[in-house]
Design a protein around this nucleic acid. Structure first.
Lengths: 114, 114
DNA sequence: CGGAATCCCCATGGATACTG
DNA sequence: CAGTATCCATGGGGATTCCG
């Protein structure tokens, strides 16, 4: 049928982790520095941010540019490929705007019953 | 900015697990029995399928209908809410169709270099 | 057939401290 | 500032067995 080769498996693999989608959003309007990403993501740690950015770089989602200076200055920027994820993310946001209330209602019902 | 309240976090929570999206696809063309879902999903176990279906039922994504008989006969069917996820899934499939080659290429490059 | 119960692995990611 | 290095907690999910 479709089983393990189905591309739909790749979506969670690609942006289904905890932070990738939010990083894409943070980079939507231009390059950001490492420290500038830490702020809006709040509860992320440096370690996890660095790991996630490295994975995104490996996958061609972002570029990493080092500006020689002291203290160091590094900027991350979306590639065209990374930017293309925004359509997916926007679709997801749109879905949430439309259907989140239903979902909350369904959960409330099922916790009320049994 | 958007941090923890951002709806985009909910996408991975909702269909970003390993199996939910694929179950939705399996149910796209009508109700299916428990055992009929096991087949195309192949490597899923009964335990995980049952858990995932229960979560989807709780969230109003599927309905579970028990037909009194021996041996038991149970059918799962998408609700309107569950069906609405198909737009997201299709968007994800479309993204993969368009961009998977780029992604593979980027990975190959970065494993070639360093 | 359609599960529930039990056990267990291990990858994700959090906490903390250190560094060029 | 932009990371590494270590250690460790959590839980999603796999393997197996049993049941009405």
């Amino acid at each position: 049928m479709f089983a393990p080769e189905c591309p739909s498996r790749l979506m969670p693999l690609q942006i289904g982790d905890k932070w990738t989608a939010m990083i894409v959003i943070c980079l939507e309007h231009g390059p950001r520095r490492f420290g500038e990403l830490l702020v809006p993501l709040r509860s992320i740690t440096k370690k996890v941010l660095a790991e996630t950015l490295r994975a995104m770089e490996r996958d061609g989602m972002v570029t990493r540019t080092e500006y020689p200076a002291n203290p160091p200055h590094v900027e991350y920027e979306l590639t065209a490929l990374g930017r293309s994820l925004l359509t997916l993310i926007d679709a997801s946001r749109e879905w949430c705007r439309e259907h989140l209330p239903e979902l909350a209602e369904a959960r409330a019902r099922s916790s009320a019953n049994g």
